[in-house]
């Protein structure tokens, strides 16, 4: 996991999270340690995140894996595992 790759994925992921969110917040402040729960996602809206992540990065994720993630950094890790 290289630093540049993480930050590039983070920038794209912020966009995806913002587009799926209902709540308004400072999306530029979203960091790898930010928890998914603190962003206001619930069991429904997280499905949109999963869908949009797959669209944005062109990969297929297992819903079970995504539901287990607790932080933005963990989603980035999952994306990198899948070759993003």
């Amino acid at each position: 996991m290289d630093g540049n790759g993480t930050s590039e994925i983070l920038v794209r992921l912020r966009e995806v999270l913002r587009d799926s969110a209902v709540e308004e917040r400072d999306w530029d402040a979203v960091a790898p340690e930010t928890t998914i729960e603190s962003l206001g996602f619930d069991s429904l809206t997280i499905l949109d995140v999963l869908y949009d992540v797959e669209e944005e990065f062109g990969i297929a994720l297992e819903p079970k894996q995504v539901v287990k993630t607790r932080t933005v950094g963990e989603i980035i890790g999952l994306l990198q595992q899948h070759g993003a």
Binding site: R18, A21, V22, E23, E24, R25
Partner: peptide, 10 residues
């Protein structure tokens, strides 16, 4: 108005 409610457009 939405910002005041801390909401994004849906």
């Amino acid at each position: 108005g939405l910002k005041r409610l801390r909401r994004r457009p849906t």
